[in-house]
Design a binder for these strands. Sequence first.
DNA 1: ACGAGATCTGTAATCGTTTACACCTATTTA
DNA 2: TAAATAGGTGTAAACGATTACAGATCTCGT
Lengths: 331, 331
Amino acid sequence: MASLQEVARRAKVSIATVSRVLNKSDKVVPETRAIVEQALRDLDYRPSRVARRLRMSNGRAHLVGLIIPDIQNPFFAEIARGVEDAAYAAQYALLLCNSDENPEKEKFYLNVMRDESVDGIVLPPFDETDAAVVEIIKTGIPVVCVDRSLARAKTDLVEVDNYRGAIEGVAHLIAKGHTQIGLIEGRSQVSTSRERRRGYLDALAEAGLTVRKDLMRSGDFKQESGRVLAHELLDLRKPPTALFVCNNLMTVGALAALHQRGVRVPQDVALVGFDDLPWAEALDPPPTVVRQPAYEVGKQAMELLLKRIVEPARPPVTVRLLPELVVRRST
Amino acid sequence: MASLQEVARRAKVSIATVSRVLNKSDKVVPETRAIVEQALRDLDYRPSRVARRLRMSNGRAHLVGLIIPDIQNPFFAEIARGVEDAAYAAQYALLLCNSDENPEKEKFYLNVMRDESVDGIVLPPFDETDAAVVEIIKTGIPVVCVDRSLARAKTDLVEVDNYRGAIEGVAHLIAKGHTQIGLIEGRSQVSTSRERRRGYLDALAEAGLTVRKDLMRSGDFKQESGRVLAHELLDLRKPPTALFVCNNLMTVGALAALHQRGVRVPQDVALVGFDDLPWAEALDPPPTVVRQPAYEVGKQAMELLLKRIVEPARPPVTVRLLPELVVRRST
DNA sequence: ACGAGATCTGTAATCGTTTACACCTATTTA
DNA sequence: TAAATAGGTGTAAACGATTACAGATCTCGT
């Protein structure tokens, strides 16, 4: 509420002096400083981030944006926590938005961030050729991609080794004796989907198993599509004896489908999911999953962003984190 | 990137004229308008929200804040979605922050919002006497409380009828024949906790059951405390035959404890939780819960906020939504 | 033909900061 | 003792928008 003007008036100095007291930088004689500090306290002065940001066009807004597809998806919520904790530690505030996997919403929010002059943005691009993101990058705002990569631009990137994760998950099923393994994957425009599919195929190949195209289904990452596709697979004349489901929500959906059909897990059909589930222990059965270190992804992404804000010209780096197979009782 | 200045220069008019073209309000002769619009397109002009906000101290920032205790809690995530959808519909952006039930973090973020001159704030207060929130309200920023109320200030409030929800949940257990019903409640400084406890007590009283103090335990809303307290209750010499658990995370924790002990649900111990769980169908067993319309809470809160931004002097209203008993297989 | 009125456009103040620069006083130095 | 230096403070120009006010042009009635 109180502005520099008012503080200056009360302390009977100029606004420049007040500003100098605030930004400890320049020298102010101790008596003046004391008077000004008293006035600041009296008026409960708080600097306007808005005015500051307007003046300093460079990178001192202490505000960064995070756009995620869906905050209700625990995987992204965990990333968000990682980002936010790292931001808070650096005293940055976070403009957090849900794109809902909707390019139009994503574009709206990207524009908001540009117009708010945020210092930088963290996001998983909608797909590899995400035009809105590419455009934002051209404006010079630092962008760090998480989880998914971008073909058209080289940015900092924190990702998980999806290929290796898929290999481990599928190999685990193979080790349990399964040869007919169904795949429920996500949107194939997303880089992670293709990596996981590649892992699935290579794991089968390595074990000398033949690939059945009819066992591979593509969904949209949502719970409902996991349910529907699981039903489809089990309705086949030669149904799979195991399912490899490529994200958390679809895993829950598939599990629900298995329950609906009354098949026993893992006796009748085994299941490995991608992404850990926060309440895995309370699920029926607790599913074996390939766990992604989502919190760490978010945290490191934010840290990369902070570094880039300080040093915009630094060459982009890619951090690749390792997933971990968590064996529970669905296999 | 491009400012009004640059557009004005290119169109060979003054910045005032450009501004007028943008805010369609004033009359500009069609030819001028066409020229300016061309220049706007050429330069891909986007107005700076920062500059606009600085100039218009009133309420046209089109930015609102949302502070929630923990985005990883599905209940709050659902509220957040409600808020964000309503905000997006009105073309408002959302500054979303996690207070982590930590007053210091909450204060930091409240200050950020003040300093960012947001148009308004939605939040569940940390407790009924939340000093930081009361102070913010005094600055005149519109605040809408959700879920929890504030004793010291009269704000718009969207809450759920916790008392009635608890009554229904506990009455359901009583109807199933239970007389020894354990209570696992949350922090008692929070208004919702007290309401639920009151419902629990009244439901018992109404059924003529005696209250056992040793069956009532107070936790912190987190999963771990649900687990610990469930163990404590079942370790009693006269353990309860049913549990009424007052939030989602503690319900999951309690369920995990029951599994650990190998007790069958609902045969050995029945359970009713407060808050629905997104993957209830995949849990073992799918729990009976008192469902709160969290999305609706968020949506209505945002709508109230928008109304208050337009009409700051409007008398505060309280919207009380009804919870719903969802009977599944834990009872 | 001239002033009133209407219509369009430009000038400049403002919002709350930061910061280059000028200015004024002491103190030091030759 | 005069000049150079240094230290402390004030003045004013940005940043990018909005908007009251003034100024310019045109229309039109008498």
